[in-house]
Design a protein around this nucleic acid. Structure first.
Lengths: 107, 107
DNA sequence: CCGCATCCAAATGGATACTG
DNA sequence: CAGTATCCATTTGGATGCGG
């Protein structure tokens, strides 16, 4: 099921990262490789099913790399691709803006 | 119904603008004040109900200003607040990133 | 440990009809 | 023109149980 890209580039970006879970995953992986279980624990309220879905989707989009180790018990590690890492400045901007906004609200 | 802000600032920002429709509305309004009908026509595939919902939500969040003129037929104009305008750099970054991404894919 | 399959509840969005 | 109200189809996500 190939996603087709929207006409507007802003929308393209949003389609890829504009999701509550995806940004949280990105922020986690920016600090380095993590295992599935670590991600799940770190994000907290996400269900296993949804986390899997999001990771698969981001993998398809070329933002995340998935590495499976043939061990028992199994180990699966996720990391950002170069494309994924290139989103960092945007995430940082969003972070800064979000903080300012919060200040405005709370006075 | 007051929304409570998420813990992570990135998420805060995303809660406010991370929506297919909201970014499109923002991009439209960045170029100046628009009437309801203009927005609807410009965005195209959005339904009246959803456009109203999104605008109301953005108004509550302090991103958009709504101005009603006591005329017949009625005229309602929407514009960005200062807070809303301050999102422009982020939207621009997203736009640029989206274009690069598209090139990579179609490459 | 990681993830798939299934079932089910809730939220979302479109279509339509009606109003000041 | 710019909404509101209602109904309904689709999507989404949580919970649970099973499997490599």
């Amino acid at each position: 099921m190939k996603k087709e890209l929207p006409l507007c580039p802003v929308e393209t970006t949003l389609t890829l990262i504009g999701d509550k879970w995806k940004v949280l995953i990105l922020r986690d992986l920016i600090n380095g490789t993590k295992r599935f279980g670590e991600l799940k624990k770190s994000i907290g309220s996400i269900s296993q099913k949804v986390l899997t879905q999001q990771l698969r989707s981001m993998e398809e989009d070329g933002l995340v790399e998935r590495k499976v180790y043939a061990e028992v018990p199994p180990r699966v590690e996720y990391s950002l691709t170069e494309t994924g890492s290139s989103l960092k400045p945007i995430l940082d901007s969003m972070c800064i803006w979000g903080e300012k906004y919060k200040e405005q609200i709370n006075g």
